[in-house]
Amino acid sequence: MKQTYRSKTAYVLAWIWLVFVALNVVDLVVRFSGKASLVALAVLAVLTALVYAVALRPATVLTEEGLVGRNPFRTTFLPWASIDDVGVSHSINVRYGDDQVLRLWTPMSSARERAKAQRRGAPAQQRGRFATEPALSKGEQAAAEAFAGKTHADWVGDQIRDRAESAKRRSKEAGPARVTWSYDSIAALVVALALVVAAVVA
Rank of each mutant, 00 (worst) to 15 (best):
R120E: 03
D84V: 07
E145M: 10
W105I: 13
A115L: 06
L102F: 04
R178V: 14
A117G: 06
Q126L: 10
R178Y: 03
P134D: 11
T132Q: 13
G175L: 01
K138A: 11
S166M: 12
S89E: 13
Q126F: 14
P123N: 02
V101A: 02
P176M: 10
S166H: 15
G97H: 03
D158E: 10
L104H: 06
S171R: 08
R161S: 08
G128S: 06
V179M: 08
Y183N: 13
E140G: 09
A143L: 14
R127I: 15
R119T: 07
A174G: 03
K138L: 12
A167Y: 05
Q126W: 13
G139F: 07
P123M: 01
R178P: 03
D98R: 12
A153G: 07
A115N: 06
A124K: 11
S109Y: 00
A153Q: 00
Q118M: 12
D84L: 07
H152W: 12
R129Q: 11
S171K: 13
V179R: 08
V94W: 02
A131Q: 15
K168V: 13
Y96K: 01
R95H: 06
G175A: 01
R161E: 08
T151V: 00
P123Y: 04
A117I: 01
I186A: 02
R169E: 13
A117L: 02
E145Q: 15
Q141S: 14
A153T: 05
R114S: 01
W181E: 14
A188Q: 00
A111R: 09
A164L: 02
A187N: 02
W105S: 15
S109V: 02
N93I: 11
